[in-house]
Design a protein around this nucleic acid. Structure first.
Lengths: 200, 200
DNA sequence: AGGAGAGGTTAGCGGTCGTTAACCTGAAGG
DNA sequence: CCTTCAGGTTAACGACCGCTAACCTCTCCT
């Protein structure tokens, strides 16, 4: 991963603040003036960087689904044959947790504002999401061959619900601590999958 | 439970359709004209039944949190001392699943549109939600005494995320079937709690 | 020196939305 | 029979919002 040390571009600032605001108050609940104000410019100045409010949401959602999928593919490739299937699943879980903890606003948007997208963008995002899900499903079924495919798919969606609960957990920097929270979520996800496979 | 056979009142029709629409397109994404049209009257006619759009959302959210809490208290009382703690937890899980499966739009609103409420209503809903969570936490800690309280609370929130994933599951009346889905979610929730308690 | 373009600004238009006002109508009650 | 009132209707207002237009001002590049 090419770690970035340089300052974020204006576009990136805007996307970050827009994500936060959209997550807090919903897409329709945020005005362009507010987004502008959050980055120190005002209202219509945003249109020098984005075609419109819709375009910001689209870029955010496509970006999220894309990087989730890319990250998962990367982790799958690193495990390439050698590692035990359980290890690969652990790696997927770890990647998703990192994302859910570090980018809460994006995780929130991800399953909340999808329907506000234009048809073409929505289809793209849905396709990326579906690929991501199917990738998980195949790994889960390697670890638990007893799981029928539709059941495995339901289980994966439910575990996403579990992992994506981070925005409801105590505010960032609170008692449990990041690593402890990550470990807890990881254990629970594993336990949930194991239970799904029992006596199906 | 007093089963209702009589026709729903107009107020109830409105609330039901409003819940569906709010869940589909978000509170700000739905106009009063659409809500009216969904029940066969038009726009401002709604104001004979509700003080405003906000009031509809408030009544929905207060109603949800209230009946979740009431149902949980009821189940707790029925178990009164006699039953094993694990049985009580199973009962709580079952109640929540029934709700999550049968009232998907409400479950969606429940954790999505809370911030659109007026201060006073929001505080009320949050208080009901907190009571509900604390009730779960105490039951969970009876079953798994090793769990520290903050960890148990996080685990409860995460399991809610898992159970509330129903809207993402295959559309109503699809393959897995209601009882199979309920059983799967139940197993997974139990497995997640058990895993949370392991080697904490 | 002098365009040119990137990145701002403010003013304002057009549409939408929540809400109110004013009016209508059918059914129930004395 | 006439009043009342619950539950509708349409018209319209005021506010807000996304977006465009027109203009300004630096910073390069040649």
């Amino acid at each position: 991963m090419a770690t970035r040390t340089d300052a974020p571009t204006r576009r990136e600032q805007i996307l970050k603040e827009a994500a936060r605001l959209f997550a807090e108050r919903g897409f329709h609940g945020v005005g362009v003036d507010e987004i502008g104000a959050a980055v120190g410019i005002s209202g219509p100045g945003l249109y020098r960087h984005f075609a419109g409010k819709d375009a910001m949401l689209a870029e955010l959602l496509v970006g999220i689904s894309g990087s989730l999928l890319t990250g998962a593919k990367q982790r799958l490739k690193e495990a390439e044959g050698a590692a035990a299937p359980g290890t690969v699943l652990d790696s997927l879980i770890e990647g998703h947790i990192d994302f859910a903890i570090d980018d809460r606003p994006l995780i929130t948007l991800h399953d909340r504002e999808l329907d506000r997208l234009r048809d073409t963008d929505r289809k793209l995002v849905r396709q990326l999401q579906r690929q991501y899900v199917e990738l998980w499903v195949s790994v889960v079924r390697e670890v638990y061959p007893a799981l029928a495919e539709p059941v495995a798919r339901s289980a994966v969606h439910s575990v996403f619900g579990l992992l994506n609960s981070t925005p409801h957990l105590t505010r960032p920097g609170s008692l449990p601590g990041r690593t402890a929270t990550a470990a807890l979520l990881h254990r629970m996800a594993r336990g949930a999958f194991a239970a799904a496979a029992e006596a199906e």
